[in-house]
């Protein structure tokens, strides 16, 4: 899919996500809007995954470590054909397999159950190690939040990935500068990330995480540096695409009222023209 199509698809995914969160009356819409461009590029341009054979041993692995943005992942998986599109309307409903955090035992296409932060990267390191042991060409991608990088387990995994020279591993940090309660800068400011990751032995690139051309270029296999795990610091906006949510800490898990929903949908539709 070319970048123009990816942009249009990402817009459709934003709208479906907005509708799902509005109808469910809960969700993490801010972080979903910040990560949707990255997810769209991964699933429709990069990942070698097959909804008809979700357990293909040679598939690429993707881990959404910021599991609270599960709704965005569900919409992407539905668009890709892993689950029925119609099922999105069950999000958070009693007995739905689409709860607030992804579950691999119930939802095809999910690789590991996330929710507690700081879990996805260590698991992704294990996946990348498995591919190395088999001399297999499949790649592993993991998306974390920027606030999530405050979890010490990530830095254990960062050190291990470098030690094992996991150049088949790509970490994408969704750097929207906001965590649940405040700005990263006001809480425990790990930014800027490159000067922290590079000395560990990682190859780091910074991009605009909402510029589809930049995302696609950064995820290209040609960017792999032999012997080094790769980190893409994606500069994003929480609530991106919806004016009153964008870069606003209030919208971590706030739900729009009917008027706000209407305005948000109108803005997204206008952007799609």
């Amino acid at each position: 899919m070319d970048t123009q199509d990816l942009r249009r698809l990402a817009n459709a995914i934003r709208r479906r996500d907005l509708q799902a969160v509005f109808e469910a009356g809960a969700g993490h819409i801010g972080g979903e809007m910040s990560v949707i461009d990255i997810l769209t590029a991964l699933y429709f341009h990069v990942l070698r995954v097959d909804p008809e054979n979700p357990q293909d041993p040679t598939r690429d692995r993707f881990v959404l470590s910021k599991g609270h943005t599960a709704c965005a992942l569900y919409v992407v998986l539905a668009e890709k054909g892993f689950i029925p599109k119609d099922e999105i309307k069950t999000f958070l409903k009693p007995h739905s397999r689409l709860n607030g955090h992804p579950n691999r035992t119930k939802v095809p296409g999910v690789e590991t159950n996330t929710g507690p932060l700081g879990h996805g990267l260590p698991v992704a390191v294990g996946m990348a190690l498995a591919a190395k042991l088999d001399n297999a060409s499949w790649r592993t991608f993991v998306v974390t939040g920027d606030g999530e990088m405050q979890e010490g387990s990530n830095w254990e995994a960062i050190a291990s990935a470098a030690q094992y020279k996991l150049d088949n591993l790509t970490l994408i940090i969704d750097h929207n500068r906001l965590q649940q309660g405040a700005r990263l800068a006001e809480t425990n400011n790990l930014a800027p990330f490159p000067p922290k990751l590079e000395p560990f032995g990682w190859a780091v690139e910074e991009i605009d995480g909402h510029d589809m051309d930049q995302i696609v270029a950064a995820l290209s296999p040609e960017k792999v540096v032999p012997g080094k795990p790769r980190c893409i610091v994606a500069h994003t906006n929480k609530g991106n695409g919806i004016s009153f949510m964008s870069d606003n800490v209030a919208w971590h898990h706030k739900v729009p009222n009917a008027e706000q929903y209407k305005q948000a949908m109108a803005e997204l539709e206008e952007a799609n023209q």
């Binding site: 590991t112 260590p122 042991l133 088999d134 387990s153 050190a159």
Partner: peptide, 27 residues
């Protein structure tokens, strides 16, 4: 090659085990 020593890092120890299992290994 089949002994993976993550160092003194127990959270990653178990996470890496889960990832290896996802990749078809018996960790």
């Amino acid at each position: 090659e089949r002994l993976i020593n993550v160092g003194i890092a127990e959270q990653t120890l178990v996470g890496v085990g889960a990832g290896l299992a996802n990749g078809g290994k018996i960790p």
